[in-house]
Design a protein around this nucleic acid. Structure first.
Lengths: 351, 351
DNA sequence: CTGAAAGCGCTAACAG
DNA sequence: CTGTTAGCGCTTTCAG
């Protein structure tokens, strides 16, 4: 059996409450006895039982992270930021993979509530019904969502400035002289993606010489990017640039372009979104919009910690983090005039 | 305040122990009362407090996963397997990023023990001192290690058959006719990597026409792969094939080769290890040894669950999972004779 | 089949 | 400054 506070008390000749005080904060206890208790605790290798402590204090010092799939590098980065912040706040992090399945998601939440976690960071509740969202909001535990939820401002939120990100991509492609532009993205319901789409389209349309992009929607993963690109190249062989809703779709686009014998950026310019690690590793290195994923996870947990601390003032907090264009080598200047000067690709542009 | 078992008892006119029985297993309680209790619990939206339960049962239904960094796709895959297995066993998973820092690692373990997790899955204790390992082994909580620990058979272990993997790589390169072969890997202390190295070298040496590979050691990440490859190309410009200790190093090798104006596989064949997702995405798609990461995480948690169940028979279990060569397009046949037949690369070999 | 009671290990008033 | 006491919410004997 593990050594308990009683053992330490007996061994150091004091009452258990004195041990508790000595080990927890130290005030209201004689310096001599405190030292003695600490020494005995160390000698016995005493490990306070946090479960028992949690039962009386009502705080478990556990936070939860519910996301779709940790294998998505985006979420891995986010998880790391979250875990670091949790650790800094002396909490640990329970990982839950929901696969965006609403039932699985609610099941996780139920289980987490029973475990009495101090707060939950959720990837997305966009897929939840109105009623499920209401239940979440009323569950009594602070929740931070990872994208702006138009439906329910009861939750705190953290998100990247997706709309500005879309706008940055549009400005960049316009600046390079592109006019036949396509955008590959996911379903309309996906809040983050549609914000990007909105910023992208509105910027293209409000240019001095307005451009109407071709928008294709499908699965927002590798194979989706691949398929949509093939479809695009079939229907619109004259496009010169693609804005993919995320980097993984962009990777799919690279693959599709290769399969069709097209070179990037010589024959087709490509810009992604997210700036996941492998964006810089693939060939050609992908120009993309950097989303501060680590910082988002970190910020979300910080909000959660604050919310968990002051159980009373539960005013939701909303934070939007800035994005940034990372210029690599997957886009080229369209007009031949100064292509060599601008195009930073090793290989000369083929025009 | 949350609704407790007392509320349910009062509301259904029975004693709390009856509620407990009715909700937990149901035997030893009248069917009528059971139904009534269940109905009341549902109506009140009663959520049993698992913390209180854990205090009396001694089991928290929490497991922990200590790894170096979740952002490494290898560990993300592993974590997913672990989480799925934990969920299937009705446990949840606490995520800890140790960065392979021994102190951080021990700090995590200490914290997890205080939280009374039912078991710990650890990435590696290779970096721990003898004394730290001994303390771990005696901590009273089941621990499964993710690679074979030569030092201490007190732990259960799960690992891939790294040695066979190295041998597969060697056979493959020999079969393609390579003779000037290099191997890039990490420090000798890294158990997994050195097993791969051993299998690789011994197979090369025991060929009918023995080959002595050039072995370079350095950081086992992207930049390490990059730097080692540059060094290699400087010192041995005549190498025709590289076996990288892991895929991320192989990616670094790709980058270095490109920087030197070499094409893969035309000028240099490359084989990796791990088969992380992006191995199939980069250009050229990387031939590599598949390590069943998801299954390893899954298997490790299954062992942990079993160990947590029978607190008495704590006999450690060791499982080695098979690896497999995934042939893609980063290696080519050396002799010109049948290069087109064997080399599956889109582009014809340049000889 | 059900209730009463003890207690898991700890914290936090409240006395002294 | 220290000890006594009353729980936190639940499970689990032990009686009835």
């Amino acid at each position: 059996m593990a050594v308990t506070i009683k053992d330490v008390a007996r061994e150091s000749g004091v009452n258990i409450s004195t041990v508790s005080r000595a080990l927890n904060h130290g005030y209201g206890v004689n310096e001599q006895t405190r030292e003695r208790v600490v020494a005995v605790a160390a000698r016995l290798d005493y490990r306070p039982n946090r479960v028992a402590r949690g039962l009386v204090t009502g705080r478990t010092h556990s936070l939860a992270l519910v996301l779709s799939d940790i294998r998505n590098p985006f979420f891995a980065e986010l998880a790391r930021g979250a875990e670091d912040a949790a650790r800094a706040g002396n909490c640990d992090l329970v990982l839950c993979n929901s696969d965006l399945d609403p039932d699985k998601q609610m099941q996780y939440v139920r289980s987490l509530l029973e475990k009495r976690v101090d707060g939950i960071l959720m990837n997305s509740v966009a897929v939840l019904s109105r009623e499920q969202q209401a239940r979440l909001a009323a569950c009594g535990v602070p929740i931070v969502l990872l994208n702006r939820s138009a439906l329910n401002r009861a939750f705190s939120t953290v998100c990247a400035d997706n709309e500005t990100g879309g706008a940055l991509a549009a400005k960049y492609l316009l600046g390079l002289g592109h006019r036949k532009i396509a955008h590959l993205t996911g379903p309309r319901e996906h809040g983050n993606l549609s914000d990007r789409t909105r910023g992208f389209i509105s910027t293209l349309q409000s240019a001095k010489d307005p451009v109407q992009p071709i928008v294709l929607r499908g699965k927002f993963n590798f194979s989706g990017g691949c398929e949509l690109t093939k479809q695009l190249l079939d229907e619109h062989p004259d496009v010169t640039a693609i804005f993919a809703g995320n980097d993984v779709m962009a990777f799919g686009a690279v693959r599709a372009a290769l399969d069709r014998g097209l070179r990037i950026p010589e024959d087709l310019s490509l810009i992604g979104f997210d700036n996941i690690e492998f964006a810089s590793v693939i060939h050609p290195p992908l120009t993309t919009i950097h989303q501060p994923m680590y910082e988002m996870g970190h910020a979300a947990i910080e909000i959660l910690l604050r919310l968990a601390r002051d159980k009373n003032k539960q005013v939701p907090e909303h934070r939007t983090l800035g994005v940034e264009l990372i210029e690599r080598q997957s886009c080229r200047q369209l007009s031949c005039i100064n292509s060599i000067a601008v195009n930073s690709c090793n290989r000369p542009a083929s025009c």
